Simulated scan of single mutants.
Amino acid sequence: MMMNFYKTNRNGNRPVRSFLLLFVGCWMAGMFGRNASAQNCADGNTISNQTFGTGQRGALPNGYINYTYVTDGCPNDGRYTVAGMVSGACFTNSWHGLNEDHTPGDAAGNMLIINAPYPGEIYRETIAGLCTKAAYEYSFWLVNLNLEFPPGTCGFAIPNDPDITIRVETTDGRLIDTLHTGVTLRTPTPVWRKFALTFNFPPMPEETTDVLIRLIDNGEGGCGNDFAIDDLVLKRCTDCESPSVYVPDIFTPNNDGQNDVLDVFMSNVAAFEFVVYDRWGSAIFVSSDPAVKWDGKFKNVACQEGIYTWSMTYTFTTSNQKYTKNGQVVLAH
Rank of each mutant, 00 (worst) to 15 (best):
L175R: 05
L175E: 10
L175I: 03
L175V: 03
I176P: 08
I176R: 02
I176K: 03
I176F: 10
I176S: 01
I176Y: 03
D177Y: 00
D177G: 12
D177P: 04
D177H: 06
L179E: 00
L179S: 01
L179R: 06
L179W: 11
H180C: 08
H180E: 14
H180D: 13
H180R: 13
H180L: 09
H180G: 13
T181H: 00
T181M: 00
T181K: 00
T181G: 01
T181A: 02
G182W: 01
G182Q: 02
G182F: 00
V183Y: 03
T184D: 06
T184Y: 05
T184I: 15
L185G: 09
L185A: 12
T187Q: 12
P188D: 15
P188C: 12
P188R: 09
P188E: 14
T189M: 13
T189A: 15
T189R: 10
T189E: 12
P190Q: 06
P190G: 08
P190D: 05
V191A: 04
V191Q: 07
W192P: 04
W192D: 03
R193Y: 02
K194T: 11
K194I: 08
K194E: 15
F195Q: 05
F195R: 07
F195N: 05
F195T: 02
F195S: 04
F195V: 03
A196D: 03
A196W: 00
A196C: 04
L197E: 02
L197K: 01
L197P: 03
L197F: 04
L197Y: 04
T198G: 12
T198P: 12
T198V: 13
F199T: 05
F201D: 14
F201I: 03
F201H: 04
F201Q: 07
F201C: 09
P202T: 04
P202G: 10
P202S: 06
P202K: 07
P202D: 07
P203C: 02
P203A: 10
P203N: 07
P205Q: 15
P205A: 14
E206F: 08
E207D: 15
E207M: 13
E207G: 11
E207L: 11
E207T: 15
T208E: 10
T208Y: 08
T209V: 15
T209W: 09
T209Q: 13
D210E: 10
D210W: 08
D210T: 10
V211Y: 03
V211A: 06
L212S: 10
L212P: 02
L212R: 05
I213H: 02
R214C: 05
R214G: 08
R214T: 13
R214H: 05
L215K: 02
L215G: 01
L215C: 10
I216H: 08
I216L: 11
I216W: 08
D217I: 01
D217C: 05
D217P: 02
N218F: 00
G219N: 06
G219D: 03
G219T: 02
